[in-house]
C-alpha cells in the first residue's frame, strides 16, 4: 500500500495490513460475539455487552431446521444492523464464495466469517483471504486445518463445534485437539516438525512459528453449541480467547438476561461464584441436540477441509 492511502494526511499509511487485520481480533479478546438476525436483536446484544455481532438471516438452529441451501444474508438486513449498533458487525459468506466475500467487503462489514454454517460453494478451495482488505475469521476442528486457513489469510480463528445444537461437546473436542497439537508441536524437535507439517497438511513455516511461540499466530475463539454461561466459561478454561454464541441466546426464553450472563461469565470465567450468580433464574436455555441424533450428512463441522 502506498503513502496516504488512508486519506488522512499521515505519511506511510497502509490499510489492510496483517497487523491491522489481526489487531481487531486482539481487541475482541475476552468478549462474546453474538448471532443476530435484525436490528432489535443487535441492540439487545450491544446493551448486554457483546463485543461484536454476527449479522445473519437465520441462526444456525433455524438453518438446520429449514434445510436447503444457506447463503450470504440480504445486504439490506446487514445494513440495518450496521446502522443500529456501534460495535463491530461481522457477516458470513459461503466457503469458497469469493464474490459473496467481495459483496460483504463492499458493505464494509468489519469481519467476514467464511463459514461452514452456510452451504459450501466450492468443494476444492477456500477464499483467497489475502486478496481482501477486510479481515476473515474461519472455523477449524484441529491445528492443521487452522494453519491452512491462516496460510490463506485468516486473521482470526474459531472452533467449528457443531453449530445450532446447543451442545458444547464438539467445540470442546476441537479446542482440546488444537491445544493438544500445539503442545505436541512445541515439544517437537525441528526435524520432527517437518514430519508433523506433512502429517497435518500445514505449511512448515506456520508449524515452526507455533512450535516457537506455543500458540496460534492469530486469536482463537470458541464457537458451536455454546448455550449457557458455564459453557462459555468452560471454553475459556480450555484456552479460548473469547466466544461466539449463535443460537444459544435468541433461542432461549430470556435473551437479554442470558446475553448479559454469558458476557459476565466470559469476563469472570475463573470465578465460579460469579458464574453461579449470573446463572440464576435465566429460565430455559435453547433446546439441545445430541450429536448422535443428527442424520448422516447433517454435520456442519465436516464442511471445509
Amino acid at each position: 500500500m502506498s503513502d496516504d492511502v488512508v486519506g488522512n494526511g499521515a505519511t506511510s499509511g497502509a490499510i489492510g495490513t496483517d497487523a491491522v487485520k489481526a489487531g481487531l481480533a486482539r481487541m475482541l479478546k475476552g468478549g462474546v460475539i453474538m448471532d443476530v438476525v435484525d436490528a432489535d436483536q443487535a441492540r439487545i446484544a450491544e446493551d448486554a455487552g457483546a463485543c461484536a455481532v454476527m449479522a445473519l438471516e437465520r441462526i444456525p438452529a433455524e438453518i438446520r431446521r429449514v434445510g436447503g441451501v444457506a447463503r450470504m444474508s440480504d445486504p439490506e438486513m446487514i445494513l440495518g444492523i450496521q446502522n443500529a449498533v456501534t460495535i463491530p458487525v461481522m457477516a458470513k459468506c459461503r466457503i469458497g464464495h469469493h464474490v459473496e466475500a467481495q459483496v460483504l467487503q463492499a458493505l464494509e462489514v468489519d469481519y467476514i466469517d467464511e463459514s461452514e454454517v452456510l452451504t459450501p460453494a466450492d468443494e476444492a478451495s477456500h477464499v483467497d483471504k489475502r486478496a481482501f482488505t477486510v479481515p476473515f475469521v474461519c472455523g477449524a476442528t484441529g491445528l492443521g486445518e487452522a494453519l491452512r486457513r491462516i496460510a490463506e489469510g485468516a486473521a482470526m480463528m474459531r472452533t467449528k463445534g457443531e453449530a445450532g445444537t446447543g451442545n458444547v461437546v464438539e467445540a470442546v473436542r476441537h479446542m482440546r485437539a488444537i491445544t493438544r497439537d500445539i503442545r505436541r508441536v512445541a515439544a517437537a524437535t525441528r526435524e520432527e516438525r517437518f514430519a508433523i507439517a506433512k502429517e497435518m497438511a500445514a505449511p512448515l513455516d506456520l508449524v515452526e512459528w507455533v512450535g516457537q511461540h506455543g500458540r496460534l499466530p492469530v486469536v482463537n475463539f470458541a464457537a458451536g453449541g455454546i448455550a449457557t454461561p458455564a459453557d462459555a466459561a468452560l471454553m475459556m478454561h480450555l484456552g479460548a480467547e473469547g466466544v461466539f454464541v449463535g443460537s444459544g441466546i435468541f433461542m432461549s426464553e430470556d435473551p437479554p438476561a442470558r446475553a448479559r450472563a454469558i458476557v459476565e461469565a466470559t469476563t469472570h470465567w475463573d470465578d465460579p461464584a460469579v458464574i453461579a450468580r449470573v446463572s440464576r433464574g435465566l429460565r430455559e436455555a435453547m433446546p439441545g441436540l445430541e450429536i448422535g441424533e443428527i442424520a448422516e450428512g447433517g454435520l456442519l463441522q465436516t464442511r471445509g477441509w
Partner: peptide, 10 residues
Amino acid sequence: GRQIHSFEAD
C-alpha cells in the same frame, strides 16, 4: 470509519 479504513502509519 469501519474496519476497512483501519490503518497503520508513522
